[in-house]
Amino acid sequence: MYFDYLTVLIFASVGLVFVFANLIIASVLRPKRTVTEGLEIYECGEETIGEAWVRFDIRYYTVALVYVIFAVEIAFLFPWAIVLRESLLGEGAAAGLGIGVFALVEGFVFIAILFLGLAYVWVKGDLDWVLTYSAPAYQPPTSRMRAIPTVDTLEGDSEDDSEDAAEDTSTDESEDAA
């Protein structure tokens, strides 16, 4: 049985020989210049600013986690698929459909639990590539905050003025917090 893998190994070594032979032949034959311009990072003719190794929005973080869970699920489902089939042939069939239906229900429960997980992630919005950050709805100015002057307030009453004067300090605090 392990001979099966030995043949794969032979195949892989043929591949390795091919790849390295090509790389070595190329390294012998190709021109070697030390032109500094060629070594610059390509950015459509613009000068590169900074490195590319910056903090990057890895949007698919959650997607990757869900992938791992589902990949493990599928890895478990492959043996299930084989057992389900075998329970119908040979000894399993002689014993009746019992194990087949049992295995089927077990498999369904397993899939359903993970499907619930997918549904949860879906409803949470983690599967949406374009994230919509819903800002909290606009609150009318309370006594703690300075009223943002809108058209209505500028046109109309001046009764807020006294409040404004009183709330200056708290406004500063809220700005700091923001």
Partner: peptide, 12 residues
């Protein structure tokens, strides 16, 4: 052609 091309490893 690929074999005869100059090879570049970018700075950094």
């Amino acid at each position: 052609k690929f074999i005869f091309k100059e090879e570049l490893v970018p700075d950094g």
